[in-house]
Each structure stands twice: as structure tokens, then as C-alpha cells.
């Protein structure tokens, strides 16, 4: 038996604390640059379409992952869509309770095949339902800065 298998009694547990001192800066890329600029400047949501696969990507991509074609056809989608699924969040990222519940949803925009993840707002928890119709609510133009948060949330569409 090696003495090393048992920590000597003068060994205290030692912990070295530290961090990985980095920040990340992400470009949006060829597709993202156009997508976010359109939202920022014109409050329009764009997708890219693969004719071969009959599939429209939102957020857009410059290629079809299904057939690997380069995608050059840009189409406007939404701003209305259908809730495919949702969850009601009561706890914040750090674990503390939220004052107001937050609703995250998968939204299939009209004209899109993929779904977009975003918040729902101006909605009664009682009326929440899969299949409900919602519409993008954009921030006022001068508050928009080329971010997914330029869409403040999606709100129910009045029938």
C-alpha cells in the first residue's frame, strides 16, 4: 500500500479559484447580417427558401442543411404565426423566483417551415394554448439595434 493512496494528515483540501477570462463577440454571418438588418431597418422578418426541398428556414441560413444547396431565395415570413409549444417560466436564470412569469414559445411564422424561439407578451396565462395565433411586436425603430430583442415579443392576434 502506497502512502500516497491515503492523504497525509497535514494535507488539507485545497481549492484554486479562478475563471476563464474571455468574452465572446459574435458576427451574425452572411445570413444573419441580412436577417437582423431587415428587422432593425424595416421591421420585417426574412427567411431563406430551398426550392428543391420545399423548405423555408427562419432564422435564415445561406445553405440548406438537407441538400447542401446554396440558398439565394429570400422570402418575407410572418409577422403572424402559430404557437407550436410554450413553457411558463417562474424561475430566473440564476434560480431566483421571477416577479412576473415569462412565457417562451416555439413560433411557426406564416410561410416558414422551421420554428423561431421567442417570448410571448400581452397574453393572459388562461388563454395560452398551442395553436394560438400570435404576431411579432417590434420595438420602436430608434430602440432597435440589430438584435433578436428588436422583436419585443409575440402577442396574441385578436380574431
Amino acid at each position: 500500500m502506497s502512502i500516497l493512496e491515503k492523504p497525509n494528515k497535514n494535507v488539507e483540501a485545497r481549492v484554486v479559484e479562478g475563471e476563464i477570462p474571455i468574452q465572446s463577440r459574435y458576427t451574425y454571418g452572411l445570413a444573419g447580417e441580412k436577417f437582423f438588418r431587415e428587422i432593425m431597418d424595416k421591421a420585417r422578418i426574412l427567411g431563406t427558401r430551398c426550392v428543391e426541398c420545399d423548405y423555408t428556414y427562419v432564422p435564415p441560413t445561406i445553405y440548406c442543411e438537407r441538400c447542401f444547396a446554396k440558398l439565394e431565395e429570400w422570402v418575407e415570413v410572418g409577422p403572424e404565426g402559430t404557437v407550436q409549444s410554450f413553457t411558463v417560466l417562474l424561475v430566473a436564470l440564476g434560480g431566483s423566483p421571477l416577479d412576473e412569469p415569462e412565457i417562451m414559445a416555439l413560433i411557426q411564422l406564416d410561410g416558414a417551415d422551421s420554428v423561431l424561439v421567442h417570448r410571448l407578451g400581452d397574453v393572459d396565462l388562461d388563454e395560452l394554448a398551442i395553436g394560438m395565433r400570435v404576431k411579432a411586436v417590434f420595438k420602436p425603430k430608434k430602440q432597435r439595434e440589430g438584435s433578436i430583442l428588436d422583436i419585443a415579443h409575440f402577442a396574441p392576434v385578436e380574431d
Partner: peptide
Amino acid sequence: RALETGKE
């Protein structure tokens, strides 16, 4: 510095 994302 590339404009493209890693995926692209």
C-alpha cells in the same frame, strides 16, 4: 476576422 459564422 470573418464576417461568416463558424457554420457558414
